[in-house]
Design a protein around this nucleic acid. Structure first.
Length: 739
DNA sequence: GAGCACTGC
């Protein structure tokens, strides 16, 4: 039953007066862009308006970038609607499908809808698709846009709604055939913006932490009560700033009589994603009377986490951002200036419950020089998985796929070459049967490739499923800051080390975690990340399920139990954990079927390694004749100082990923033999002979023989311009980061 | 002897 109180609340939302107008617009047009600030009620109300006024509509899909949002919104809406969650209104997120055959309104993550599209590109179950939070421009929403535009041509009766914050409106509308737009006012309080008098953002990079602390002190001394949110870039920054503020405040309290004009006491909290104490919900509580709360946070506070009661925001002007370099195939995490849109969003965090103030540590001129919008993720990520999904949907010509902001073609070719090396596509860019099978897994294509070879060639799929699950979760080792604790953590880690490297070490950890009954305290004592292990456990179950459904056998390469080797080895070498329980060879060979692409060779005299031949990387490295030295990460079992193996015994390593900081560090490495991968290496030589961009196939299929993959000159020019602009922005960002 | 922002299938 619908609660009259809830009905009243719905009618008080800023969107309610626009109800009829919205319904009419949706009736008249199948494409529509709706903008509105936070608090307008668009996410919860518009889908209900459709539900109530379009009885012929079978299923409405609403996508969200985050799991939590999909879940909580669905819950709220089902309450408003007076039905049980999972009946008429439900949600679908990975590991948790709360829908039924009765469901007519389904909230989900954009990733879930995208996966659904790989098997049903027409999205034939849906009559309405709503893409919410479109301004966030995740890779998934951007791909959905291109896909929806295509689907719309095949199914013009499909209704598509794009919902976004009040930015980018024209861009979205232009993309969807110049469709109409509507703006819904939000419920936000005024935020007064204060720029620094003269600080240029280019000179701020080395000083923003202390300036942020100074500004925090200033607010504490001069401003009326109200909590403070400070945006910094990472864990180190945040911990330092927290310490500094507390120290400075102590000094000041002793020396300055003006201290505490308005507020006497303070509490200071850090906030970042890997913080285990997210469960210590104190951050979200109201501080005691006469105490001011300070929260030093990463970008997590810009979109994902809302802290109530914030009246003041301090914006450093920087963010730590991932950017993938297709030339080297490396991901770098760089501290870069934010965009104007991000600055606005940060300031807005001060006006959620009352009027507020934002202090920007940079001057107005610097603000005006910032990019208007954050560069969409699709222009700074590896597109490997995306390209494979698109191929599976039957889209051959990826370079000319209609992206709202096209990625650098280099990113696309880089992905295509890697897919060729994984044998997922052939020399003309067509999906192979192996590639087709790889798309059944919700994983990075490298990992999908390994899973298939473990089941079909090497008979060790039980173990590989575990290793793959661990690799797709977060970092398992927790590194404490405190020196003494660090020693304990290192000792604990040694217990799991395997002499072949980190992949077998991950297997050891997972099995030990299972043997202890998935105990959280057991993890804490060993400084293992419980959250990572529990995700791995879920992923493992999901993968096993998928394999069984697709006829891929789960086979173990565990040795016979009657051997006493295991016990003997453990006694002899106390630091090793179950060194002999498995034969590592098939496991490593199976990993090498994909990770030969990440092969490195040791320098004959120095403790560093070099890329042996990795697609794009080997080319640019060879032509510059300046090889990039790769180091083994200190957390690795094979790190020489950990004394598990001698570095001289390592000749060839495969690595899972490189993190680039001051040095290029290989994370998660294992020792392999070259003859395992020798045959595969010939695929590198075939690369130059391929036409992977799919233009050839696409043109043949559409009856054209033109070598040019794009025939409309206007469209082509627009695309080239967009790409050039993106490249220039990327260069500027890099230059800025290196200053 | 190094240090990793945030999501998601």
């Amino acid at each position: 039953m619908v609660d009259p109180k809830i009905q009243k609340q719905r009618e008080l939302l800023p969107i309610f007066p626009y109800r009829q107008q919205i319904i009419d617009a949706i009736k008249k047009k199948n494409l529509l862009v709706i903008t509105g600030e936070t608090g307008s009620g668009k996410t919860t109300q518009i889908p209900q308006y459709i539900l109530e006024n379009f009885p012929e509509c079978r299923l409405i899909g609403v996508t969200q970038p985050r799991r939590i949002a999909a879940m909580t919104v669905a819950k709220r809406v089902s309450e408003e609607h007076g039905t049980r969650l999972g009946n008429e209104i439900g949600y679908s997120i990975r590991f948790d499908d709360c829908t039924s055959t009765k469901t007519r309104l389904r909230y989900m993550t954009d990733g879930v809808l995208l996966r659904e599209a790989t098997t049903d590109p027409k999205l034939s179950n849906y009559d309405v698709i709503i893409v919410d939070e479109a301004h966030e421009r995740t890779v998934e929403t951007d791909v959905l846009f291109g896909l929806l535009k295509q689907t719309y041509r095949m199914r013009p009766e499909l209704k598509i709604l794009v919902m976004s914050a009040t930015l980018n409106v024209e861009k979205f509308s232009d993309f969807f055939n110049k469709c109409p737009t509507m703006d819904i006012p939000g419920r936000m309080y005024h935020v007064e913006i204060n720029h620094h008098r003269d600080a240029k953002i280019s000179s701020l990079k080395s000083t923003y932490i202390e300036r942020a602390v100074d500004t925090a002190l200033f607010i504490h001394q001069e401003e009326p009560p109200g909590d403070v949110l400070v945006f910094l870039t990472g864990q180190n920054d945040i911990e330092r700033a927290c310490r500094d503020l507390e120290r400075e405040a102590r000094h000041l309290r002793r020396s300055d009589i003006r201290y505490g004009k308005h507020v006497k006491a303070m509490v200071v909290y850090p906030l970042y994603a890997s913080l285990e104490t997210m469960e210590q919900r104190a951050i979200f509580d109201e501080p005691p009377e006469g105490t001011r709360k300070f929260v030093f946070a990463t970008n997590i506070a810009q979109t994902s986490v809302t802290i109530p009661g914030i009246k003041y925001v301090i914006d450093s002007g920087f963010v730590k951002q991932k950017s993938y370099d297709p030339n080297t195939g490396m991901d770098a995490l760089l501290v870069v200036p934010i965009s104007q849109a991000a600055a606005t969003q940060r300031a807005g965090r001060a006006g959620r419950t009352a009027p507020g103030k934002a202090y920007r540590l940079y001057c107005r001129e610097s603000y005006e020089q910032m990019d208007e919008e954050t560069i969409p993720e699709i222009q700074r990520s590896s597109l490997l998985g995306t390209v494979l999904s698109l191929k599976k949907m039957g889209i051959q010509d990826i370079i000319n796929f209609e992206f709202i902001d096209p990625p650098d073609p280099l990113l696309v070719t880089n992905a295509l070459r890697q897919l060729f090396l994984l044998e997922a596509i052939d020399a003309s860019g067509r999906l192979t049967s192996l590639g087709d099978l790889m798309t059944i897994f919700p994983l990075n294509p490298f990992l999908s490739r390994v899973l298939i070879s473990s089941a079909k060639e090497f008979n060790c799929s039980r173990e590989i499923v575990i290793i793959v699950s661990m690799l797709s979760a977060e970092e398992v080792f927790h590194s404490p800051k405190n020196e003494e604790k660090q020693m304990i953590a290192e000792e604990a880690r040694k217990q799991f080390y395997h002499s072949s490297g980190d992949h077998m070490t991950l297997l050891n950890i997972f099995e030990a975690y299972r043997d202890c009954g998935h105990d959280i305290d057991w993890c804490r004592e060993r400084y293992l990340n419980h959250r990572a292990l529990s995700i791995a456990k879920n992923v493992r179950e999901q993968i096993q399920d998928i394999m069984e459904k697709n006829g891929l056998p789960i086979i173990s390469c565990r040795r016979n139990e009657n051997s006493n080797d295991e016990e003997r080895t453990r006694k002899k070498r106390k630091t090793y954990y179950r060194e002999t329980k498995y034969d590592p060879e098939p496991i490593l060979q199976s990993l090498a079927t994909a990770y030969y692409i990440h092969l490195s060779k040791r320098h004959p005299h120095r403790p560093v390694f070099y890329h042996y031949a990795s697609g794009a990387a080997s080319e640019s490295v060879d032509s510059n004749s300046s090889l990039l030295a790769l180091h083994i990460s200190p957390t690795s079992a094979l790190y020489p100082e950990n004394k598990v193996v001698k570095i001289e015994s390592l000749d060839w390593l495969i690595y899972h990923a490189i993190v680039y900081t001051n040095k290029a560090l290989m994370k998660t490495v294992s020792k392999i033999r070259y003859n395992w991968v020798e045959e595969k290496m010939s695929l590198f030589k075939q690369l130059p002979k391929t036409r992977l961009d799919g233009s050839e196939v696409a043109n043949k299929e559409s009856g054209q023989n033109d070598d040019m993959s794009e025939n409309d000159p206007v469209k082509k020019n627009r695309r080239i311009e967009a790409i050039a602009a993106a490249k220039e922005r990327a260069l500027r960002r890099r230059a800025m980061a290196q200053e």
